[in-house]
């Protein structure tokens, strides 16, 4: 009996903690105030991120928050933790709680389509951020604010080609093979490589799962068997790993993609050459702005808002930290 009571107490504590954690992650005032009728000028906007576990996603969070504060709208941020089912129920929940707009990065481009359409049919403004649903225009999605992974990949590989003078042995580290981001970036690489017949891939691209340690081990092994001039990585974390394996100022061109603090640090101390930054903050800000425009009855010049990628190396890294 005593034990049961103790367990019940524990469970209660865990539940209270959950509620507290839930409130903490919201950017809005406590729920009690939310239940008051919202002022007509304050829109309720929800941003549902794929996850919040890397620097890029945190930049998305921060960009959205800054823009929301600037425009004076109420913003709630949720994370789907990479789970499509979670994201669907979060969208449904936001619709029933009367949000005016839902911004989200689909965990799965196909799986989230129906949920998006249902939300749009209920009169909510739906906008995709960072990546987008398959055939989004027909799913009621009002706009898409994203970078372009193919273009970012092209940007990165073009800089590598320029640095190598269009000639040399190249190796590629990729993210998980079945992920759209990774596939698009690879397509970008290949588009550029097609123009430079003297740039050769001497090993098959290695899937290092976005992971620094895995990239580091793979590159260590490669370096004892291959003569590499450039190592092109699909994110900064893996580029840092490659840089650690090669050592500072190795003479090997090592590049990353995303533009995250770990990448900047490695650029500064010469372990990696440069990175291409996707501006997550700008994507989120554009999306919030577009949502407000649409809610105010305005219209967008284009419903595809592309944020350009930028090349960052030792010369300009200080501007981005």
């Amino acid at each position: 009996m005593k034990k049961n009571k103790f367990l019940a107490l524990l469970l209660t504590c865990a539940m209270v903690l959950t509620v507290l954690a839930g409130c903490g992650s919201k950017d809005t005032p406590a729920p009690a105030e939310e239940s008051k009728p919202a002022e007509s000028s304050t829109y309720k906007i929800a941003l549902i991120q794929q996850h919040q576990t890397n620097a890029f996603q945190i930049a998305v969070t921060e960009g959205a928050q800054a823009k929301a504060a600037e425009l004076g709208v109420e913003l709630t941020i949720l994370s789907a933790d990479q789970d499509a089912a979670t994201q669907i129920s979060q969208i449904e929940q936001c619709v029933s709680e009367g949000y005016n707009a839902i911004l989200f990065e689909p965990v799965d481009p196909d799986g989230l389509r129906d949920a998006a359409k249902a939300a749009a049919d209920a009169g909510v403004v739906v906008i995709n951020v960072v990546s987008f649903c398959t055939d989004w225009e027909n799913a009621g999605i009002a706009a898409v604010s994203c970078g372009n992974n193919i273009k970012a990949g092209e940007n990165e590989m073009q800089h590598v080609a320029d640095l190598l003078g269009g000639k040399g042995n190249v190796a590629i580290l990729t993210g998980p093979s079945a992920v759209t981001d990774a596939l698009d970036r690879l397509t970008g690489y290949e588009n550029i490589l097609a123009n430079y017949p003297d740039m050769k891939q001497v090993v098959a691209p290695a899937d290092c799962q976005w992971d620094t340690a895995k990239a580091q081990a793979t590159v260590e092994s490669w370096l004892s068997a291959y003569d590499l001039d450039a190592i092109v990585c699909q994110n900064d974390g893996m580029a840092v790993g490659a840089g650690n394996a090669a050592g500072a100022d190795s003479g090997i061109v090592i590049t990353g993609l995303d533009g995250t603090p770990d990448g900047y640090e490695a650029i500064k101390d010469g372990r990696i050459t440069g990175t291409v930054a996707q501006d997550g903050g700008a994507m989120a800000a554009n999306a919030v702005e577009a949502a407000v425009t649409l809610l105010n009855g305005g219209s967008l010049e284009s419903n595809l808002l592309i944020t350009d990628s930028v090349w960052i190396d030792a010369s300009n890294v200080a501007d981005y930290e």
Partner: peptide, 10 residues
């Protein structure tokens, strides 16, 4: 070894 602390490591 990897010179950064990553929450998604390991």
């Amino acid at each position: 070894r990897v010179t950064i602390g990553q929450p998604t490591a390991a």
